[in-house]
Nucleic acid binder design. Sequence first.
DNA 1: CGGTGGATTGAAGCAGCTCAACTTTTGTGG
DNA 2: CCACAAAAGTTGAGCTGCTTCAATCCACCG
Lengths: 238, 238
Amino acid sequence: MRLDIHNSTVPALCQACEARHGGICGALEPTQLQQLGRQTARREVPPGTQLIAAGVPADGYANILSGVVKLIKLMPDGRQQIVGLQFAPDFLGRPFAESSDVGAEAASTVRLCTFSRSALEQMVRQAPALEHRLHRQALRELDDARDWMMTLGQKSASEKVASFLLLLAAHVDPLTGGYSATFDIVLRRADIADFLGLTIETVSRSLSRLRRDGTITIERSRTVTILDIDALEAAAGR
Amino acid sequence: MRLDIHNSTVPALCQACEARHGGICGALEPTQLQQLGRQTARREVPPGTQLIAAGVPADGYANILSGVVKLIKLMPDGRQQIVGLQFAPDFLGRPFAESSDVGAEAASTVRLCTFSRSALEQMVRQAPALEHRLHRQALRELDDARDWMMTLGQKSASEKVASFLLLLAAHVDPLTGGYSATFDIVLRRADIADFLGLTIETVSRSLSRLRRDGTITIERSRTVTILDIDALEAAAGR
DNA sequence: CGGTGGATTGAAGCAGCTCAACTTTTGTGG
DNA sequence: CCACAAAAGTTGAGCTGCTTCAATCCACCG
């Protein structure tokens, strides 16, 4: 594997790009990567940065190279729901629409490979496989969204929190396929609450209970170690 | 509009097909429709028919010609969440996957235009615009799913029920773009409860309150008339 | 008619929310 | 490195909205 990664015709940026194989760029030929490479810019943003504003025409798209991005929906009265988390090497943005009704915000320090709407459209025209990749990611996100609907609609508070920890454990490390035993909760308690449809107090109580039960440990409110993965899965309701 | 609908090169089936323009087949040329037409079968199924079983390799795909289809996710302990409703002229099925982890069940009498996996794949190869249509529908469903996550996670019971009525009013009539003033709730109370993450009793109480407030009327527990659309939207939390 | 499945209504219990006090962590300046 | 302030998280106590359990009502159909 990775035989072609040192091919000199692949742009230097893309050679080292973590999104190269898992993300949408894996659909591109070296010459196409070169072309796209000329139109991309790397960006590193601090936590809290607004990446896409809901309802506002977006300036472009991006691949996530590292970090976690929150997708947020807002109600007129200020209530908010986090409708998804995105990790490397996900594609970020809403194709075929002027604007999206979900906002995107960096939950951690996030590194991005950004490009314009027209650059993407140009690449799609030249490489139909690219639209296929985008399509597959959309379907994967749809599956994820429906999974989470199950969590939001049917699970109890403690099941929700356990499910959230499993979600993080499965995604924070883009390289490994399975669960990470130790990882950082990059979200604040308020964000977790908005993701789970709970209050910060209930989230905190549920985490404390998991710790008291010996299922996990938590250091400085951020670093989680899973001590008993079976117990955690059971606590998540499956 | 509809100038080409009587073109004799379009298969008779498709000429009258309600899914023709709004659905994915709108992406096809008459000759392609002819070709697909030879590989499709119409089917009419009664309420309750299992159309797609979760986790089981699906035999094929379909367009919904009329009726309502429930998308259902199940937990090991039997709890279930309806993760979406599909109306004419939606495409039904999960492209690019052997099986889906959501099941599909007819909520009303449903008329379908069915075709095999290979027929679809063949058409996609010949008409890239078809994949584009499928992609757009996936993105629309993703938007819908995220909208509903907001409802599930943040709204109160009565807001959920009002949101559900607005959803139905906007979709039961595939022809009009806006809300229908009068429509049938095709789902049973138990289904509504599974869609909203509530119990049947709470759904019933919320409906009764909307009726008592003069916002809607309900005949024989099934036919709803919206008397005050503004009040209903306000009750839905927007 | 009577019977059956679905819907409504009532009363009591409890899971998660609200309000409030306290603790831990983080950031800043001496 | 410590002192201090601000922000974030935890814990407790009481309250409330939804669920649970149970009785009744209603539409439909042989």
